[in-house]
Design a protein around this nucleic acid. Sequence first.
DNA 1: AGTGCGGCCTGTCCGC
DNA 2: TGCGGACAGGCCGCAC
Length: 272
Amino acid sequence: MPELPEVETVKRDLEKLLAPKQRLAKITFHRKDLRYKMPVQKLQSLVGKRVQSLDRRAKYLIFRFEQHSMLSHLGMTGTWRQEPPNFKRKIHDHVELLFEDGLILVFNDPRRFGVLDFFEGQNFAHKSLSLLGPEPLDLSIDIEQIWKKVKLKSSSIKAVLMDQRILVGVGNIYASEALFLAGIKPTRSARRLRWEEFEKLMYHIREVLVEAIRQGGSSIDDFHRTNGQSGQFQDLHKVYGREGLACYECSTSIKAKLIVGRSSFWCPSCQV
DNA sequence: AGTGCGGCCTGTCCGC
DNA sequence: TGCGGACAGGCCGCAC
């Protein structure tokens, strides 16, 4: 999926399309089972309600309506795209939103690992949001607090970075990228990191996420923006997907291996 | 209790 | 060319 920068990109794209306070006119389901069965009746109850705002929490998008909220997760292959009236439906178009000004938003998701759910109220009153860790781009978060949790982990630092209970938003691509920038091997035991290393890692996590957002995210295969465009950050990956190629810093051949089931990339010379 | 694995799905690519 | 297997950005439930 879409990790934090991709979801943030979609959120910003959608914000530009959604006129303030406009009402949802119609919601159409072409199939009702994504990762979970969608609560069709509850989602239908949003018809006629105004969208107050759009939020992102971790890799989730939240459409905030007048009283209740719609939760959207892109899974691995989910996309929201804008379409004109009478558009030709594509394979794997599962849900369509029509707004009163004619805006049409379509949710497409081939693998159906995505989520579309409903929750009451406008805060973060959804089970999936309840255990999430802090937002890396929130400068007010307490990094020492995160550090304390990391010190208790026996797993690799890469696995810990991808644990959304510790810190949200970092997935498989940006974990490899941030660890490269920080000069830390992904296989390193999390609890054996030194404070200076962790501080540096947090700095580079933020750096890589901010830059990726600036580039409209990474499009490896499925990720597209609401207008169908690709992101640009995949061209700036320093290690992800570069197995066997020369490190941009030192020309050493980039290594790859599975760490807790996910392909991980690093430079054996730049990262210790 | 914490960790890693397999499963959820479909599409694509690679080797035989 | 066709087929099986591996793999793909996430997350959950279940064994150990």
